[in-house]
Amino acid sequence: MSDQLKDNEPFIEDPSVRTTKLRRRAFVGQVLVGVIILFLWEFLTRLGWLDSYYWSSPSTIVRTGWKAITQGTLLQDLAYTSGSTILGFVSGTAAGYILGLSFWWSELYSRIFEPYMIAFNAIPKLALAPVLVIMFGIGFDSKVVLAFLMTIIVAAIAACSGVQSVDRDLEKMLVSLGAKRRHVFMKVVVPTTIPWIVSILKINISLALAGTIVGEFISSRQGIGRMILYAGQVLNIDLVWVGVVALSLLSIVMYLGTVWLEHVLMKGRAPKS
């Protein structure tokens, strides 16, 4: 046993052993819980304890999904939905970030526009979806615009809070080193706000997805949202589940994407700065 010590060897504690052990065990546990849930779902519906008409079952979902991929348009729909979500997310988050940062440049300007930002945040953007569909058509554009509107204000508010958290003394120090405002902006304000914007990436990706799907619900010729709506209308509940699973998978992939983005943006920083 590696835990056992030889007689004259000192005990050197290695905390990393504990953490790797813990991580491995946690992973096994995570997989196990997932498998159990799937099994329960499958067998409870087979035994009739859960009504398979409403709950479908993992095996049916896989079968229906496979059919939707090979005979239907599931993959095209998935591409359509993820395309508008990602486009809306990136443009909305970037625009919101820039908007929030701009509040640093002028106090007067920031005081004038802050209440409007809060007011815009209060508007339930999804309720505007029918108008947007009329304005931008039933195609791709209206979904991107919805995702954009869902994300922009969250990013702007986060960037704005980041701007307010900038350490005045850091600004002072830079000015004493001869810095102009653009130097302070690039070297202090932007880096200070990065953790703030990073912290809302995950929220925004789900908001963008919600925006897109509502857009597809209202009116669309393609997309997972349209597929779910259609399947619901013809009471093909198995296909609804396929749509939900597809969206969940999409959501997970995009979540991992934001984790990667986070990693890139926070590179070179000490953890928990």
């Binding site: 003394d169 004493s176 080193l177 202090v188 990065i194 920083r269 000490a270 700065s273």
Partner: peptide, 19 residues
């Protein structure tokens, strides 16, 4: 006019995200 003298405060004011 700033930038003519070096100035250091009690706080070290190092940027935490830079080496």
């Amino acid at each position: 006019e700033s930038g003519h003298v070096g100035y250091m405060l009690q706080k070290d004011l190092l940027l935490p995200w830079r080496s």
